[in-house]
């Protein structure tokens, strides 16, 4: 008879974990999830409130009435645009266009970035050869490259997606590579001792270890691909209109109400993309490490 089996380890369980185990763990997890979602939403709403407050303060306290057109009050901006289908219709179409470009670019950047990092991690010399290309991609200012892309590829959907991919690719590559290399030497030894194949090492060790970093990369790449899509719109006026194109048109016409509505829409889009990926990050990573998982 083994003394090990007799020795119940209850005493050295971390307190707290034990409580959750004793109660229905799934319920506790959901409740914690809601609480943390609430805790994340309130500061964001407060920040929006703060921005609106500053906006009104500048409009009415800083700007004299004859200069007030530079920052019209929020309710006027919304009043003249949101109810007007002649303005809102094209604006939402353009936003949809930009969203499509940003999400397609992001999807391609994710696949390419992860693939590139996986290839790099296969051998030290492969990384040495391939990494400089990623760095160069990162250091060329996208604004310098975009007109050239337009000349080569035209001003349609695909040229804009290329701009997005170029701007979003580096954080995907860098974060995935960092994550794939994050498993410790002892964990690698464990796989070696069990005669793991290269594929087993990649899919059962390196990839799972990289998941948190991949999500960090995803969050950064998502924000950048929104920027990329708007940059594309800005440069490629001749092709399909995007929200970035309208921004330029409204600016030239000094249509301040429409300009501010367009800016608010792009900001909301950026916040939405960031929030979705941040929430996805928390949900997946929490489950991954057994926090709040049933």
């Amino acid at each position: 008879m083994s003394a090990a089996a007799v020795n119940a380890p209850a005493a050295d369980t971390q307190s707290g974990t034990r409580d959750v185990v004793a109660q229905a763990p799934a319920r506790a997890g959901v409740r914690r999830g809601l609480v943390s979602a609430g805790a994340k939403v309130w500061p964001l709403l407060a920040a929006v409130g703060g921005i609106v407050a500053v906006w009104y303060a500048v409009t009415y306290l800083v700007l004299s009435p004859e200069r007030r057109f530079l920052l019209p009050p929020l309710h006027q901006v919304i009043g003249t645009t949101v109810g007007n289908p002649n303005i809102m219709g094209p604006m939402l179409d353009a936003l949809g266009q930009t969203v499509g470009v940003a999400l397609s670019g992001l999807a391609i950047a994710v696949v390419l970035g992860i693939g590139y990092a996986v290839v790099m991690v296969q051998a030290g010399w492969v990384e040495k050869i391939l990494y400089p290309y990623a760095v160069i991609l990162q250091t060329i200012p996208i604004l310098a490259l975009t007109p050239l892309i337009g000349i080569w590829m035209g001003y349609g959907f695909s040229a804009r997606i290329v701009v997005c991919v170029i701007i979003a690719l580096f954080p995907m590559i860098a974060n995935t590579l960092f994550g794939l290399q994050s498993a410790g030497p002892a964990a690698h030894d464990l796989f070696t001792l069990n005669r793991a194949t290269r594929a087993q090492r990649l899919f059962k060790l390196q990839f799972p270890a990289a998941l948190p970093s991949i999500f960090t990369g995803l969050r950064n790449a998502a924000g950048l691909s929104v920027i990329g899509a708007i940059v594309g719109d800005f440069f490629f006026q001749q092709g399909l209109p995007g929200i970035g194109g309208l921004l330029r048109v409204y600016t030239l016409r000094l249509n301040m109400d429409a300009l501010f509505t367009a800016i608010i829409l792009t900001a909301l889009f950026g916040v939405a993309v960031f929030s979705v990926f941040a929430a996805l990050d928390r949900a997946v990573i929490g489950r991954w490490y057994g926090r709040g998982a049933p």
């Binding site: 964990a187 464990l190 001792l193 069990n194 059962k204 060790l205 998941l211």
Partner: peptide, 26 residues
């Protein structure tokens, strides 16, 4: 078999699935 200085468990796996790993790899 080899027991390392650190437990060297895979954080994303449950206790049971960590113990299962060797069999799984083989």
């Amino acid at each position: 078999s080899y027991v390392f200085q650190e437990a060297t468990l895979l954080e994303w796996r449950s206790a049971l699935r960590n113990v299962e790993l060797a069999g799984e790899l083989r």
